[in-house]
């Protein structure tokens, strides 16, 4: 593989609060290759969405990117001017949000919203713009796009609305799309349709996806690789199938064990004891230690990455292959 499409190094994103600086993202590094689908998994508040927003330079005060580097196609994004960032957003990297009903402007036709996004980067004639909009709608599998261009968002179903959002994200042909829980608000059957649509899209256009979700089932069905976040850090990464089949980090194992499907009928539901730590003035060492069944004295110190081929976990006592 040549140079990755996206390379994030030691990203740290903080929010100023009354109680002190909140480290929502604390030293995250990863890369995304051309045409790759990377799942970013974690509980709410683990920093996965903030990571996504950081990549697009959409962190608003009181938040800021405090340190680190984000390189897209070799170009450094951290520290770019607003103007330069605006040229990147939508054009090189786009984003799709969780709730399509809240995302689309209810007062504008979808054609109008698509043209607004298009004209942010390209000055096309009316005919060319229309053709581009229709093509994008077709790409995401919206039937009869000519007729739907003048419809308003409320005239679409939830799944169709999310397809419209994806079409808007696609309209300037970005190389990377950050998808922030895009199927969470949808019915399971619609969810499955969109997932297969997305896979097709990646195959046909070579676009890369960062798929942010708390839903392991969705990620396992879609992603090539998965990264698990906890308390602002990536604690485990690796190819989806192996990672989810035999997790190395106790947190990943806990997440998997608490899936209802993983538990035999009638057996008590498993859960991870305790709750995520505060991200303000976090103590050094492993953030998961207070909840970890395997925690011991060394966990007070920063855990090392234990790497094994494509897989890695950040733990003093990683689970061995085959362990529960």
């Amino acid at each position: 593989m040549s140079a990755p499409l996206l390379e994030v190094r030691d990203l740290r994103t903080e929010f100023r609060t009354r109680a002190g600086a909140l480290r929502a993202v604390d030293g995250v590094s990863f890369s995304v290759g051309q045409g790759e689908i990377v799942g970013l998994v974690g509980e709410s508040g683990s920093g996965k969405s903030v990571t996504g927003f950081s990549i697009l330079g959409l962190i608003e005060p009181p938040g800021r990117i405090a340190a680190g580097s984000i390189r897209l196609e070799g170009r450094e994004l951290v520290g770019l001017s607003h103007r330069a960032l605006r040229g990147v957003r939508g054009r090189r990297v786009a984003m799709v949000f969780q709730d399509p009903a809240a995302t689309l402007n209810p007062l504008l036709t979808i054609g109008r919203q698509m043209r607004l996004a298009l004209s942010a980067h390209q000055a096309l004639g009316a005919e060319a713009a229309r053709a581009r909009c229709l093509a994008a709608l077709r790409q995401v599998g919206i039937p009869d796009p000519e007729a739907r261009l003048d419809s308003y968002p409320h005239q679409f179903s939830g799944g169709m609305r999310q397809r419209v959002c994806i079409a808007i994200a696609l309209i300037n042909e970005p190389r990377l799309i950050v998808c922030d829980e895009p199927t969470t608000a949808l019915d399971v059957s619609i969810q499955a349709q969109i997932l297969s649509e997305m896979r097709k899209l990646v195959r046909e256009t070579g676009v890369s996806l960062i798929w942010i979700s708390h839903d392991l089932a969705v990620v396992s069905a879609l992603a090539d690789r998965v990264m698990v976040m906890y308390a602002g850090r990536i604690v485990e990464r690796g190819p989806t199938r192996e990672t989810l089949r035999a997790p190395r980090h106790p947190y990943t194992a806990g997440l998997l064990a608490s899936l209802p499907a993983a538990i035999p009928p009638g057996a008590p539901l498993s859960q991870i004891a305790g709750s995520p730590p505060s991200l303000i003035d976090a103590p050094p060492g492993c953030a998961f230690a207070p909840r970890c069944p395997r925690a011991a004295e060394p966990c007070r110190a920063e855990p090392p990455w234990s790497e094994d081929g494509a897989r890695a976990a950040r733990c003093h006592f990683p689970l061995e292959a085959g362990a529960p």
């Binding site: 697009l56 984003m95 809240a102 209810p106 607004l116 959002c165």
Partner: peptide, 28 residues
């Protein structure tokens, strides 16, 4: 709101966002 974040993520300029989205939505 997500509407404005989405418009920003699409690279729309702040002027366009204020005129086309915000003004339109607060006009009601």
């Amino acid at each position: 709101s997500d509407t404005v974040k989405f418009a920003r993520a699409a690279g729309e300029s702040e002027g366009v966002i204020l005129r086309r989205h915000v003004l339109r939505l607060i006009s009601i």
